[in-house]
Write a protein that binds this DNA or RNA. Structure first.
Lengths: 140, 140
DNA sequence: TTTGTAATTGCACAACCTTGCAATAAGCCG
DNA sequence: CGGCTTATTGCAAGGTTGTGCAATTACAAA
């Protein structure tokens, strides 16, 4: 369902310019298996194109977020991680005891979204959450 | 149900030292009406005690978070805001269109917490969320 | 009240992310 | 293909938050 190139296509259609910096940033995100940080993206881009500036990477990430093409997740590591939405939405339960991560489908949050819409007329944008707490193994 | 002094009491009982820096940081949080930022706390503390360092404020906030005495909420303003849990848990729906904020009781998230516990054995710590999206007035 | 000890602070610095501004270059149009 | 316009970049600087380390100080115990 998700082809490499989706993001590029969307950008052109929306009239944004395809600079080498953007293309390489996008490639890094799309080729990353899971959740990639800005610094990791920058390292990959800078390897091929040494004089890029990391603020360009941050600006590209902000643009892709705004267009809904990537999601941003805060795993509480002091930095945020990015994921292409084309590879599917999901969420994570992060155990603060053992550090374990349980992956979650989008469905768990559907009832909440519906309740917010029904009771408050609010259309929530719950894209890629990290929910903190304690997993079963680590007791209550 | 919440007295000024709750936090101080908890700290002593847990064996933490009551330094003037901590006491003033705590006072700033408890006397703030709503959600206060680290910089605002620091300004209040520094007014009476000029040579405090802002990193001490951050360390105190981290401690209070760890002990579950304050919650931290990210309203996406580039800085985070703090709230004493003694004044009650709550959540916020933040409209990304008009900037409006709808306050929410804790109850809305109870079904989600129960579902996570039931289906994943995960005890989620959903303390003080800002949920982004679009409010009813701003249409879909 | 004085002393001892370990928690806490201040300081300096670093990491992550954002922004203003002048220089550059992507894509349009002829 | 060459020039024009304006989006985009690089650079430098700034804001928020975290951290290592030596100096200080709260509290316990004498």
């Amino acid at each position: 369902m998700s082809h490499s190139g989706d993001i590029v296509k969307e950008l052109t259609e929306q009239g944004y310019r395809l600079t080498p910096q953007r293309l390489m940033t996008i490639a890094a995100i799309e080729h990353s298996d899971g959740h990639i940080s800005a610094e990791e993206i920058y390292a990959q881009v800078a390897a091929k194109y040494p004089h890029v500036n990391i603020s360009t990477v941050y600006r590209t990430l902000e643009l892709l977020k705004k267009l809904g093409l990537v999601t941003e997740t805060d795993f509480d590591e002091g930095r945020v991680r990015y994921h292409p939405v084309g590879k599917g939405h999901h969420h994570h339960l992060v155990c603060q005891e053992c550090g374990g991560i349980i992956d979650l489908g989008e469905a768990v949050l559907t009832p909440l979204k519906e309740a917010l819409l029904r009771e408050y007329g609010f259309s929530a944008d719950l894209r890629h959450l990290a929910i903190f707490g304690r997993c079963g193994k680590c007791g209550r």
